[in-house]
Amino acid sequence: MSSSLLRIQNISFSYPDGKPVFERIDLNIRKGTLSIISGESGAGKSTFLKLFNRFHDLTDGKIFFHERELRDYQISEIRRSILYLPQLPHMIEGSVEDNLFFPFTFQSQKDKKYSPVNAREWLDYFQLGVSLSHEASKLSVGQRQRIALIRALLLEPEVLLLDEPCSSLDSRNRRLIEEKIESLVESRGVTAIMATHGDVNFSESVCAFFRLEDRHLKALQRHEKQGA
């Protein structure tokens, strides 16, 4: 399994009060794939994603990134490479550009260069129809979600952890975001793990579907994917 970008080996996680969230999970994630993790609310999908950027620490088992154990990396290296996008797209005060630029001021991202040209290309790609100087507070929820995605993509992480990016969107915006995510994976080689509790419409050629249920992760077969 040397081709895995992320290799999850027999992992378990419990909350500090001892309540187990999931147990003995194995999973391999290859570069340029989209892994969809479905499950009911409270199944632990967000917690599962947050293990990869070390917002949570494993209770047991190991996660390998580039075949090196995750906990052997410096935390700043992990956060640069594996980027978690929260469910609600938080915007800071200021313009769209302020929102895209501020992560580049962080010490761990200092070697990356912000490019307004690149930012404009992403705005077009996501069909935002707003300029970089547009006031962020005036964006709709759907626009904010896309800006949050662009903010992450500008940092060029190796893995994107998408925590229900479509949960608060209407069907039109949801479809748009899903199409863009699929296209990013298919044509630009982005690797993403996405948590969802609703229906998704991704093609099987790029996606692997899993369900988090009863503390275990189950790979879904073709007939089980509908309503994942």
Binding site: L83, L85, P86, L88, P103, F106, Q107, S108, Q109, L155
Partner: peptide, 16 residues
């Protein structure tokens, strides 16, 4: 909390 978690996820240190 949400804003701070976002900053951390984007690579910020606790002080940043």
């Amino acid at each position: 909390y949400d804003r701070i978690e976002l900053f951390l996820a984007l690579g910020a240190s606790p002080s940043e």
